[in-house]
Simulated scan of single mutants.
Amino acid sequence: MSESKLLLKRRFWFLAFPDIKKPIGGIKQIHRISEVINTLGFSSYIVQDHCDFKPSWFTSNIEAVSKVDFFQTIKLDKLRDVIILPETFISALKEIYPSIPKIIFNQNGGYTYGIQGAKYPSPSHIHNYYHDPIVKQVWCVSEFDRLFLSRAMQLPTSKVFRIFNSVESTLEQLPLKKNLICYMPRKNKNHSDVVIELLKKQSFLEGWKILPITGLSHSDVLNVLSFCQFFLSFGHPEGFGLPIAESLSLGCSIVGYNGLGGKELFDFAGRYGCSYSVDYGDFYGFVHGLSSLIHASQLNSSDYIYQSTKMAEQIRSIYSESSMTNSVLDAIEAIAI
Score class of each variant (00 low, 15 high):
309 T>E: 10
302 S>H: 10
311 M>N: 02
312 A>R: 00
303 D>W: 10
286 F>N: 11
294 I>D: 04
309 T>H: 03
298 Q>M: 08
291 S>G: 07
313 E>V: 06
289 G>H: 14
309 T>G: 02
294 I>A: 00
293 L>A: 01
303 D>P: 00
295 H>V: 00
305 I>M: 01
310 K>R: 12
299 L>C: 01
291 S>N: 12
311 M>Q: 10
299 L>D: 05
304 Y>P: 02
309 T>N: 07
290 L>P: 09
307 Q>N: 03
309 T>R: 13
312 A>W: 14
296 A>C: 05
282 D>C: 06
303 D>N: 10
304 Y>V: 05
311 M>K: 06
287 V>M: 07
286 F>S: 12
293 L>H: 05
302 S>Q: 06
282 D>L: 11
289 G>S: 10
292 S>L: 13
287 V>H: 05
307 Q>I: 03
283 F>C: 12
308 S>Y: 08
313 E>R: 12
287 V>L: 12
301 S>C: 06
295 H>E: 13
305 I>H: 01
292 S>R: 14
285 G>P: 11
304 Y>I: 03
293 L>T: 01
313 E>Y: 04
285 G>H: 09
293 L>Q: 02
283 F>L: 07
293 L>C: 03
299 L>P: 00
307 Q>T: 01
295 H>K: 03
289 G>L: 08
306 Y>M: 08
305 I>P: 00
303 D>V: 14
